[in-house]
Nucleic acid binder design. Structure first.
Length: 920
RNA sequence: GCCCGGGUGGCGGAACUGGUAGACGCGCUGGAUUCAAAAUCCAGUUCUGGCAACAGAGUGAGGGUUCGAUUCCCUCCCCGGGUACCA
């Protein structure tokens, strides 16, 4: 009987569920291993064949580790709050909880068919109040903490209050966005409200005003990627920048720790580099410039203080707070016009502009060393959000400053002699200082040190470190997210008592924002307005809130007392291996690391970093199928004929195409536009072109795993996904190719089961050759799994089965270990054969076999013989033959003699067990 | 522009530390089986020449190191991802 995957897979999936074999418990007798997949957002479209790629890899890896004796945690859950469900709710009026629930059911059904080993008793959903109780709890801890830069850790805010009461803030080095100085008596004289507002400057979760993309027509705030060219992507309505009071998380306090810990992580180098760039640490100096006729000083940030004698003008961001004071009456009109011009431009436009523009303010700054007058300009190339929003312009050593100087005819003073460094660009930090007074003759690096010392001594500047990274906006004016456990009294935010958590997301009558532009939750006045006069926060938390700590919850997902028990956390500690898409390189991975470090400071988790090893799985792309429509006609032509007409390419459903030939019948029934169309074939066939691109409904190239599994089975599907190529690479899906692994599984089956379903495996001694094949495979598969090279594992299995088949091997001594090592890849067929073989318990609880070195030792080797590096023939020689004896033997070889043509070889190189090269 | 990947048959890919380039599979070609087809099995399949033995070329292009380079070094081209007037 043939291998009946449908029956086998259903049987064993039911068996595993019934026996609960994937249930994981803490077990001190075994080493722990935590394997994690990035949990999915359950979209309405369901899974396509690209989604499970990483899940299959971790499934194989975790099954392997547990057969090797580890206690493996491999959980799954759902990132269930998010924009698409809310958008759908706005369009249909359906509650997002309901559609989310339905989508999760679809996902679980689809995942179930693939045969994963998740411990579903540990499933979590970020939208479940039992889960987000602890998301809210962590937020409260952030709210109640400040960051002590000296101790390099978060501390309770009460300790900061105690310090303020005793000595003010002068001896505190805290992460803060305020530079206000105050003494103990000044602090103690403040009202309760003033104290509360001032503390916000120090909390790790704080309120501040910031600009958002406000779309008046939609009455809502838009994410950056929902805005195109200053208009909303949906509907094309104008979008303006609007100031709103919002929650922020002080991630910048952790910038250095986030940066330096990267070195210790086993992550792809490219991903670590992205995080480094995102943090964007730079070392330089703050310099204070006097302004002619003004009390106030202008603070600038520069990484090149050494070039200060080359500064010939200053540039401010058009939003700079000092601008009004610096603008003289005569320049007022021009400045205002320029500020207006910049206001209308989106950040993206401003940043992409290649044309230099700017306006003189009328004021002059004074050079701190020479006292020279430096005109102060404004220009859009200086950004208010970076550094201090003001620069000293050094046209000799900065390309943008140079272009600006050229356009406005400002002087350029060369200050760095780079003649010792041919090829150095103007912004490279190399060279010898010239025209720079006391810096003359110094190397750039030395000059930086010297000039900062001078500036500090003169009280005109200081060493300073700057980051590109900014605090994380944590408010969303949306419904489908975690409510903030915050109540305002007299505009001051107070935390809810932890006993009141979770603060459950209330019902509302419509998912739209209110008419006056407040978040949707404001619609439920009963919920918002408390009897004691308190007003609840109506913003909700962003998507990354719930995903920043979910890996901890899996350790103990049903705990109502703590986010996870101390014992569970002490046992599981951190994620050993994390698999997910590269699109989360900076967002999710940065926030999760930040939260983890905070929880470490709180003493809740024992490790500084959450994810020890990380791999990005590549994307499985779709193959779009393209046909050509003749312009202005209801006529389509086969691909070879497209150049005879003016044509437009059109994508058709990938399922209508077999071997590049289109099934016209199916196409005609697909859409009315094809019903009566004319089709011109070539050689009786209608051929299509193929384009590899993202798998998406839009391109009609989506392949659903359910269909593939129905036709070929889950085991074939799993192995084929792995066989496609290296896990990190992008590669196109081609359903045709699955035939290969499907055939392989049938061949594999026939080693065990005969045509009439008879059991072929015998308890006989295996031939040495068969044992060689087996042990070679055990070794290769084991080491390839360790390095996540799963595609080569599959081909190793193919080679093994081909060889065993040719050898007519039916010995249990070989076929028992073979079932075990294939079990992680094809868990169903392995379980079936294991059980038929009379194996104890599940094959997935069996031990991973050891390979036996004795079968891998060879006594002879067929050496390739090469002449001048080109292989000419082969020769079988004993591996223990001494080199000079080999040389002699080789020279007797007729093919080699022919190539030597009677001459003596210049050299004979023997690499034992590898190759022999004769140089003539 | 900068940073990080990557360019190998018709296609997906293999070659782990410099040692037989193209494993494994798809597709294609021919054959067996079949009334026929599907399925299955067998053989061939980098390119060029040759019936073949064999010879020449060949891992994006050019150069270098080496007995030997897909692998190391230099220059350049192309593709993918990230990022940016970041002072």
């Amino acid at each position: 009987m043939d291998y009946n995957f449908a029956e086998i897979e259903a049987r064993w999936q039911a068996y595993w569920k019934e026996k609960d074999i994937y249930r994981v418990r803490e077990d001190e007798t075994k080493p722990k291993y935590y394997v994690l997949d990035m949990f999915p957002y359950p979209s309405g479209a369901g899974l396509h064949v690209g989604h499970p790629l990483g899940y299959i890899a971790t499934d194989i890896f975790s099954r392997y580790r547990s057969m090797k004796g580890d206690n493996v945690l491999h959980p799954m859950g759902f990132d269930a709050f998010g924009l698409p469900a809310e958008q759908y709710a706005i369009e249909t009026g359906q509650h997002p909880a309901k559609t989310t629930e339905e989508n999760i059911a679809t996902y679980k059904r689809q995942l179930g068919k693939i045969g994963f080993n998740y411990d579903w008793s540990r499933e979590i959903r970020t939208c479940d109040p039992k889960y987000y109780k602890w998301t809210q709890w962590i937020f409260l801890q952030l709210f109640k903490s400040w960051y002590d830069k000296r101790a390099q850790r978060a501390r309770p805010i009460d300790e900061l209050v105690a310090i303020f009461e005793k000595e003010g803030n002068r001896n505190v080095d805290a992460a803060s966005h305020s530079d206000l100085d105050f003494s103990a008596s000044e602090w103690n004289a403040l009202s309760e409200k003033e104290k509360a507002l001032r503390l916000l400057d120090y909390r790790l979760a704080y309120l501040a005003y910031s600009e958002v993309n406000w779309c008046p027509a939609l009455g809502t705030v838009l994410a950056n990627d929902e805005v195109r060219d200053g208009r909303s992507e949906r509907g094309g309505h104008p979008v303006i920048r609007k100031k709103m009071r919002q929650w922020f998380l002080r991630i910048t306090a952790y910038a250095d720790r986030l940066l330096y810990a990267l070195d210790s992580l086993d992550w792809p180098e490219s991903l670590k580099e992205m995080q480094r760039n995102w943090i964007g640490r730079s070392e330089g100096a703050s310099v204070f410039f006097d302004i002619e006729g003004q009390e106030e000083k202008l603070e600038i940030y520069t990484t090149r203080p050494d070039t200060i004698f080359g500064a010939t003008f200053m540039v401010l961001a058009p939003e700079h707070p000092l601008l009004e004071k610096l603008t003289t009456a005569s320049q007022h009109e021009k400045v205002e016009a320029y500020v207006d011009y910049v206001k209308k431009r989106s950040d993206i436009e401003r940043q992409q502009e290649k044309k230099v523009s700017g306006v003189f303010t009328g004021s002059y700054a004074l050079h701190p060393f020479t006292g020279k007058r430096l005109p102060v300009y404004i220009s859009e190339y200086v950004l208010i959000a970076y550094g201090t929003g003001a620069i000293m312009a050094v046209p000799s050593d900065d390309e943008r400053d140079q272009r600006f100087a050229q356009k406005y005819q400002l002087p350029i003073i060369e200050v760095v002699d780079r003649s010792d460094y041919p090829g150095a660009k103007i912004e490279d930090k190399v060279g010898r200082m010239i025209n720079s007074d006391f810096l003359n003759g110094l190397e750039v690096k030395e000059a930086i040190r010297v000039v900062i010392d001078r500036l500090e001594a003169a009280g005109r500047g200081k060493r300073s470190v700057n980051y590109r990274m900014r605090d994380a906006g944590f408010s969303r004016q949306r419904y489908w997210g975690e409510p903030f456990p915050i109540v305002y009294y007299d505009d001051v935010p107070y935390p809810l008592d932890e006993s009141e958590l979770p603060l459950v997301l209330p019902e509302i009558d419509s998912y739209l924002p209110t008419e006056d532009g407040r978040a949707p939750l404001a619609r439920n006045r009963e919920w918002v307005e408390l009897p004691d006069g308190g007003i609840r926060e109506t913003d909700t938390m962003p998507g990354y809130a719930g995903s920043s700590w979910y890996f901890i919850r899996y350790m103990d997902p049903h705990n109502d007392e703590r986010l996870a028990s101390e014992e569970a956390i002490a046992y599981w500690r951190d994620v050993d291996f994390y698999m997910g898409g590269a699109e989360h390189a900076v967002g999710h991975l940065m926030y999760a690391r930040f939260w983890h470090k905070f929880l470490y400071d709180m003493g809740i988790v024992p490790t500084e970093e959450p994810f020890r090893k990380l791999i990005n799985q590549g994307m499985i792309q779709g193959q779009s199928k393209i046909i050509y429509r003749v312009n202005d006609e209801n006529k389509f032509v086969s691909r070879g004929l497209k150049d005879r007409y003016g044509t437009t390419p059109i994508r058709v459903n990938v399922h209508f195409v077999d071997h590049d030939e289109l099934d016209l019948e199916q196409l005609r029934n697909w859409r009315s536009e094809f019903k009566d169309a004319e089709f011109e074939c070539e050689d009786g066939k209608f051929l299509v072109d193929t384009e590899v691109e993202k798998m998406s409904k839009r391109w009609h190239n989506v392949v659903n795993p359910d269909d593939v599994i129905d036709r070929y089975g889950a085991d074939a599907f799993r192995m084929y996904e792995m066989f496609l190529g290296p896990i990190e690479d992008h590669k196109p899906w081609d359903t045709q190719g699955i035939d290969g692994v499907s055939k392989f599984l049938r061949k594999f089956w026939r080693l065990y089961v005969g045509d009439n379903d008879e059991w072929l495996v015998k308890d006989e001694k295996a031939a040495t050759g068969d044992l060689k094949i087996l042990h070679k495979t055990i070794r290769k598969v084991g080491s390839d799994i360790e390095r996540l090279s799963l595609n080569t594992c599959v081909s190793a299995f193919m080679v093994c089965v081909n060889e065993l088949q040719a050898a007519h091997c039916h010995s249990r001594e070989v076929l028992d270990p073979l079932v075990r090592i294939i079990a992680p890849f094809a868990p169903h067929i392995a379980e079936e054969l294991w059980q038929r073989m009379g194996g104890k318990g599940s094959v997935h609880r069996a031990e991973w076999p050891q390979y036996d070195e004795q079968y891998l030792i060879e006594s002879e080797f067929e050496y390739p013989l090469s002449v001048n590096g080109k292989v000419r023939t082969k020769m079988l020689l004993p591996l223990d033959m001494p080199k000079d004896e080999i040389s002699e033997k080789v020279l007797e070889n007729p093919v080699i003699r022919k190539w030597l043509d009677g001459k003596a070889p210049r050299k004979v190189i023997v690499v034992p067990g590898r190759i022999i090269n004769i140089v003539v």
